[in-house]
Design a protein around this nucleic acid. Structure first.
Lengths: 191, 191
DNA sequence: CACACTATAGAACGATCGTTCTATAGTCAA
DNA sequence: TTGACTATAGAACGATCGTTCTATAGTGTG
């Protein structure tokens, strides 16, 4: 029925490329509309639906739902997708991975000491600074003035760090173990 | 000397909040300038320095350097430098991983057939539908009406799918291999 | 000190902005 | 069919846009 999803997709693509949204006439050219009033109406609908919003200076900014990404339906893999895909599930990656931006930092994995945990060299881990960690969690600790990502473990002598790779030894701090933060997620980009 | 870094920081903060950049007069209000010509000059300097650029409709868009974060972000008093120095960090993971939203879907990994590739059950992969794939790439193929994530490989008899786990066999389609898309990234959340 | 250089202020300009109005085309239900 | 509703086109409007000019203040050099 409505072509709004198609328009939204074009705005999302434009945004992914330029990191800003175009003006109304720019949007018209982008989605193939010839009148700004049509663009204005469409923008109104997308605002109503939670995809766009007004910035303080009345420019249009993307809203929460603008960054929702579609999750492929495993069941219907082979079948052509029905046109009314309003049912399809969505996920906002940033919201999914980060719940407290101010306490969150990213760190790149170096070496393959956590390879069995699925953390490969170059992967980025999402670290929640100062979050409480318990044995079995993956943490970022400070060893010899460097960040290191390892499993946090505990035995009768206290806490220690266990690599996710049998070829590496456990690390036990002499006095006390300094945990920088908790690893709450990771991500990776293929070239 | 120059207050440009301070101005840039305010623009970055504004962008982080609104995901767009304001107009020249908006920028002036943001950074405390009273004339648009000063803003224009500043924008010119930031463009020259690679932080900003012109979008097709002459709006200002952020450039690559705009998203680099100071290493100081992860330094705290008394703490060592992060191990990933000189690596630029990205504000939005979504924007880092997805460059063509309309062609992108997410898919959850099932089973451990790609465990050696660092893809564990429950991980989400970012799939670029219809993107060209070459041998060695990780792809999403449709086998028996279900999505499957495997390495795409090629030998003298043609293309086949190779799991990232020696315990699983290669998959060779009888007639032709249906590749749904290319895996361009992945992410994972720890409980 | 004089001089060169830079950053900002302020004003003027045409271009473009977003809003708002009316009009047209299409769809759906009765 | 008629009527209600929606989406788009087109035009007009004042507001705002970004550019460009001159002028002023500050800074560093010699």
């Amino acid at each position: 029925m409505s072509k709004d999803p198609e328009y939204l997709a074009k705005l999302q693509d434009y945004y992914a490329e330029h990191r800003i949204l175009p003006s109304f006439s720019g949007m018209g050219a982008l989605v193939g509309m010839k009148s700004k009033s049509a663009v204005s109406a469409m923008v109104g609908r997308l605002i109503e639906a939670g995809y766009l919003a007004y910035a303080p200076d009345r420019r249009i900014q993307p809203e929460r739902r603008f960054f929702e990404r579609e999750i492929a339906d495993t069941i219907q893999a082979g079948l052509p997708r029905p046109a009314n895909d309003s049912q399809s599930e969505v996920c906002s990656i940033d919201e999914y991975l980060i719940d407290s931006p101010s306490r969150t930092v990213l760190l790149a994995i170096k070496g393959d000491s956590m390879i069995d945990a699925g953390l490969m060299p170059g992967d980025k881990v999402i670290v929640k600074k100062g979050a409480p960690a318990k044995p079995g969690d993956i943490v970022v600790a400070i060893v010899d003035n460097e960040f290191t990502v390892k499993y946090l473990e505990q035995d009768k002598t206290g806490f220690y760090l266990r690599p996710g790779n049998k070829a590496f030894p456990n690390i036990r701090a002499q006095d006390h173990l300094e945990v920088f933060g908790l690893v709450v997620g990771s991500f990776r980009k293929y070239v």
